[in-house]
Amino acid sequence: MDEQSAAGLGTGPSADGPDAAYRAGALDLLGLLAYGALTAFDRLAEDSRMAPGLADKVQLAVMAGQQVEHFGRLRSRLADSGIDVMAAMRPFHEPFNGFHDHTRPKDWLEGLVKAYVGDGIAADFYREVAAFVDADTRALVHEVLADSGHVDFVVGRVRQAIESDPKVGGRLALWGRRLVGEALSQAQRVAADRDALTSLLTGTVDRPGLDLAAVSRMFSRLVENHTRRMAALGLQS
């Protein structure tokens, strides 16, 4: 077992030093994920009102329910580490709310693209950070970010809409470009505002991490993954 896996997150107040900085970064990641799950639930519930049929509404309700389950698991893990989920989420209210305020979908299809493209970029960012946390925390991150079948649903619905009306593709492609710009700005802002997260990525807490050039390559990977998602939807990135 490596040092990170053995150390885990611990409980109670953190002391000064590299272990404290690492713990703060890992707890930030869990708080970020928890608020992301909470806002995803709220957004999916709202988007379901625009669903064209009952089957689509049910699918979004299932997706929203999964976010509630994810939130519960993250809240429990934070509680095990002596951290209240409300306090852990508080630093991320402003960037998350700002992102969603600037990317409110105007219709059902824009909501689907946002759920796939916007959330996909965020999930990729969380996985990049999770590469540098202890094994238990990393496993939880990957579990709550795992696809539960909604990708096929979203891709199928969007492709079907484009086949029915090719002009829809151009509008959704522009929407996807806007989403990637806003999402990357959000990720950069979070990384810049939260020193503990940045220290995980840059390896400045005496743990293996990324140098600044590697951070730049990480953002390039986020863009590449976005391009693949857009292609899956049948859209130009």
Results as ranks from 00 to 15, higher is better:
residue 42 D to K: 13
residue 229 R to T: 12
residue 211 D to I: 04
residue 206 D to K: 04
residue 79 A to L: 07
residue 28 D to P: 10
residue 115 A to K: 02
residue 98 G to F: 03
residue 149 G to Q: 11
residue 121 I to P: 04
residue 143 E to C: 02
residue 15 A to E: 04
residue 126 Y to S: 11
residue 212 L to Q: 14
residue 233 L to V: 07
residue 181 G to D: 10
residue 186 Q to T: 15
residue 35 Y to S: 03
residue 188 Q to Y: 05
residue 191 A to D: 10
residue 158 V to E: 07
residue 32 L to W: 01
residue 78 L to K: 02
residue 5 S to K: 10
residue 65 G to S: 08
residue 70 H to S: 15
residue 148 S to E: 13
residue 210 L to K: 09
residue 3 E to I: 07
residue 178 R to Y: 05
residue 154 V to F: 07
residue 175 W to Q: 01
residue 3 E to H: 15
residue 83 I to K: 02
residue 133 V to M: 07
residue 46 E to K: 12
residue 123 A to I: 04
residue 65 G to N: 08
residue 42 D to T: 13
residue 59 Q to R: 15
residue 154 V to S: 08
residue 191 A to Y: 08
residue 228 R to G: 09
residue 109 L to R: 09
residue 13 P to N: 14
residue 104 R to Q: 13
residue 34 A to L: 05
residue 101 D to K: 09
residue 179 L to I: 15
residue 157 R to K: 14
residue 228 R to N: 14
residue 227 T to I: 15
residue 86 M to K: 15
residue 64 A to G: 04
residue 219 F to S: 15
residue 223 V to Y: 06
residue 235 L to N: 02
residue 81 S to A: 15
residue 27 L to V: 11
residue 48 S to G: 14
residue 233 L to C: 09
residue 106 K to Q: 11
residue 75 R to W: 05
residue 161 A to P: 00
residue 27 L to Q: 03
residue 13 P to C: 14
residue 175 W to R: 00
residue 190 V to A: 00
residue 35 Y to I: 13
residue 115 A to P: 02
residue 158 V to T: 10
residue 208 P to E: 12
residue 63 M to V: 03
residue 13 P to W: 06
residue 203 G to F: 11
residue 193 D to T: 08
residue 39 T to R: 13
residue 54 L to T: 15
residue 198 T to G: 05
residue 210 L to H: 08
residue 86 M to A: 10
residue 215 V to F: 05
residue 67 Q to D: 13
residue 184 L to E: 15
residue 212 L to P: 06
residue 25 G to Y: 02
residue 220 S to E: 12
residue 65 G to Q: 09
residue 111 G to E: 04
residue 181 G to S: 14
residue 22 Y to C: 03
residue 148 S to T: 05
residue 109 L to W: 13
residue 201 L to N: 05
residue 134 D to S: 11
residue 22 Y to N: 07
residue 230 M to V: 04
residue 185 S to Y: 12
residue 74 L to V: 01
residue 120 G to H: 11
residue 143 E to V: 12
residue 147 D to I: 04
residue 49 R to D: 13
residue 234 G to H: 03
residue 168 V to K: 08
residue 69 E to M: 04
